[in-house]
Amino acid sequence: MPSEHTSPRGGVARSQRRRVPAGVAVGAALAALSVLVGCAPEPDPAATRNALTEVTSEPVAPDVVDEYSASEHPDPIVEPLDCTPYLIVTARGTGEPSRKQLLGPVARAIEEARPDETLRLDLDYPADTEINAGATLGARTLIDTLNVQAEACPEQRTILLGYSQGALVIGDALAAPDARLVGAAVGEVTEAAAERVLAVVLYGNPRFVGADPTGYGSFSPDVNGLLPRPPGSFTPYEGRMRDYCVADDFICQSTLSVEEAGHVAYYDNGMQADGAAYVITRLGPIPKTDAAEKRGDAERRADESETRDDAPADVRERAAAEGES
C-alpha cells in the first residue's frame, strides 16, 4: 500500500486522493512491483551527501567541460534507439548498480502495464562519488538522447525516472543552463524533445525545492535539498512531474534530520508504487489487439447486416428512418 504522506500545501492525504484510477493494468503491474521492491541493494546515504557537498566546492575540471561541451563537440554522443511508443530512461543514484536499483521496480511496473510498447534505457553515466565529472557526462548523454529520439522517433513519448544523483542529472538536463550545477555547457533539450517528455518521477532529489508544486511526500515546504535549484526551474514540466521527498531525507531536506534511513526510505515506503501508478495513468489508450479488432469488425458487419433486405421489416424501417434523419 502507498504510504500516507503530506502534500506541499500542508495536511495529510493518501496518495490515492491525488491519483487518477489506473484500472486493471495498474493493479497487475503494481502487484508485480510489490514482489520486486525488496531486491534492490541500498546505497550509502553518507557517501552521497559527502560527494554532493563537493559539487559546489570543487568546480568541474576544464578538460571535462571541454570534452562534453556542446559548442566544442556539437555532434550527439549517442545513437538513435528503437521507435517504441514509450522510452523509459532511468538515472540511478550514487553507488547503485545498473541492475537492481531503486528505479528498477518502477520501470518494470510501467513495462508490464504496456507489454511490447516500451523500451528501457539505463542512463550511461558513472553514478559514483565524482559527481562533477560524472553528472556532467550524464546530463550531456540525457540531453543528446532526448534530442536524437525526438528527431528519429517523433511519435515516441519519454518517461524519466531519477533517484538521488540521478534526480540531479535529470533535473539539470531539463533546466536552463544558468540554473544548473552540472553540465552548464552540454547543450539544451530542444522544444520538440521537451514536448515529448510524458512524465518525470524523481526520488531523494538533492536539488529539491520545498515550495515548488512538483513536490510529493512528507517534507516541509519551507525546507530545500542540499543543493536547491532556483524556484520555478521546472515550471514547463509542472503538470507532468512528481518530485518525491520524505521529511527525514537529509538529501532533499537538508536541515531536518541527519538520520541516514530517510534517503533510502523510498525502497519500502510505497512511493515506488505511487510513482509507477502516476506514470501509468499518463499513458495513452491501450491499443486494440488483433483479436479485439477482429471482434470489432465482426460486430460492425453484424450491425450492417441488420439493414439488409432479409432483415426483419421493423429493422429495415428503423434503418431507413435513421438514414433520412
Results as ranks from 00 to 15, higher is better:
residue 325 S to Y: 10
residue 70 A to E: 08
residue 180 R to A: 04
residue 120 R to D: 03
residue 176 A to C: 03
residue 73 H to F: 06
residue 145 T to V: 08
residue 18 R to N: 03
residue 63 D to G: 02
residue 231 P to Q: 13
residue 283 L to F: 14
residue 166 G to V: 06
residue 62 P to S: 03
residue 17 R to N: 02
residue 158 T to P: 03
residue 292 A to G: 00
residue 221 P to G: 02
residue 135 A to L: 08
residue 131 I to V: 15
residue 31 A to N: 11
residue 159 I to W: 14
residue 219 F to A: 06
residue 1 M to L: 11
residue 80 P to W: 14
residue 307 T to F: 12
residue 151 E to A: 11
residue 205 N to P: 04
residue 167 A to G: 11
residue 117 E to Q: 15
residue 32 A to F: 09
residue 21 P to F: 11
residue 104 G to V: 07
residue 14 R to T: 08
residue 98 S to Y: 15
residue 52 L to N: 10
residue 104 G to N: 09
residue 287 P to R: 00
residue 29 A to K: 08
residue 19 R to H: 02
residue 22 A to N: 07
residue 132 N to C: 14
residue 249 D to N: 01
residue 237 Y to G: 01
residue 96 E to Y: 08
residue 94 T to I: 14
residue 280 I to D: 12
residue 29 A to M: 05
residue 305 S to I: 04
residue 308 R to C: 03
residue 83 C to G: 05
residue 70 A to G: 06
residue 247 A to P: 01
residue 85 P to W: 13
residue 83 C to V: 06
residue 6 T to L: 09
residue 260 E to S: 00
residue 224 N to D: 15
residue 7 S to V: 12
residue 111 E to H: 01
residue 110 I to S: 08
residue 300 R to M: 08
residue 193 A to V: 15
residue 50 N to A: 11
residue 166 G to N: 07
residue 211 A to D: 08
residue 165 Q to R: 04
residue 27 G to E: 15
residue 58 E to G: 01
residue 181 L to V: 08
residue 124 D to W: 14
residue 3 S to R: 14
residue 110 I to R: 04
residue 180 R to H: 05
residue 232 G to N: 13
residue 28 A to I: 09
residue 186 V to R: 12
residue 136 T to D: 12
residue 83 C to Y: 10
residue 35 V to I: 13
residue 268 D to M: 03
residue 222 D to Q: 07
residue 115 P to V: 04
residue 137 L to D: 01
residue 48 T to R: 01
residue 21 P to C: 00
residue 102 L to P: 08
residue 138 G to S: 13
residue 294 K to I: 05
residue 29 A to G: 02
residue 39 C to V: 04
residue 317 E to G: 01
residue 56 T to I: 13
residue 69 S to P: 07
residue 150 A to G: 12
residue 236 P to E: 05
residue 230 P to K: 01
residue 254 S to Y: 08
residue 84 T to L: 10
residue 16 Q to D: 08
residue 316 R to E: 04
residue 9 R to C: 01
residue 57 S to K: 14
residue 184 A to M: 05
residue 121 L to S: 12
residue 272 Q to I: 06
residue 206 P to A: 04
residue 278 Y to P: 04
residue 71 S to W: 14
residue 94 T to S: 05
residue 128 D to C: 02
residue 27 G to N: 09
residue 94 T to P: 04
residue 266 Y to W: 04
residue 205 N to K: 07
residue 214 T to Y: 12
residue 165 Q to H: 09
residue 190 T to D: 11
residue 199 A to K: 05
residue 15 S to G: 03
residue 264 V to S: 06
residue 205 N to T: 07
residue 279 V to E: 15
residue 139 A to I: 13
